[in-house]
Amino acid sequence: MKTRDLAYIALFAAVVAVLGVLPPITVAVVPVPITAQTLGVMLAGSVLGARRGGLALLLFLAVVAIGMPVLSGGRGGLSVFTGPAAGYLYSWPIGAFVVGLLTQLFWRRLNLGWAFLANVVGGILVIYAIGIPFTSLYADVPLWASFTGSFVFLPGDGVKALIAALVAVGVRRAYPVIELPARQPAHR
């Protein structure tokens, strides 16, 4: 991996951290705030692609784990990895990877629609598919209960996917970072 890729990965880990500073919206019924940090998951995949996007979120989690309060609300440290909503955290690198994979797949014809699709699948479906069963297993509640509990986040996540799609198309035009394998030298 080139130093440039490493810098891009570190940059998006930082972007996710900065998005955590934006004031979270708290919904009364669910004890998890709606934050802009999953927007960072979508952006990392959309801009950097699968491998670097996933690694950016892994790096972000490493920064959280060593005790930096970079999760929304100034949380951090190892305790967030043992909390009931930790499954959502674990899902972030995978979500970013899937967003990146789909973005690369659609790269040549990427428009708002395709970018939105990539972000909905990777940034919403994948994250829910991991976070919901995790909470259910970990806190010993049936699947339906943790399933209905997460629906409060759906409208917010939809808006985030739309924003991420707009940004993905804009950045692709202005400063494309993703290179398709065909254009890369063979030895990489």
Binding site: T3, R4, Y8, V15, V47, L166, V167, G170
Partner: peptide
């Protein structure tokens, strides 16, 4: 959110410059 495109383009360039500076100092 309209801030995001110019912001990301700026910081991506910044990261690129940082990487070049690191390589010049033997990071790779």
């Amino acid at each position: 959110f309209l801030l995001l495109v110019p912001l990301l383009v700026q910081v991506l360039q910044l990261a690129h410059t940082t990487a070049e500076a690191l390589d010049a100092r033997g990071a790779d």
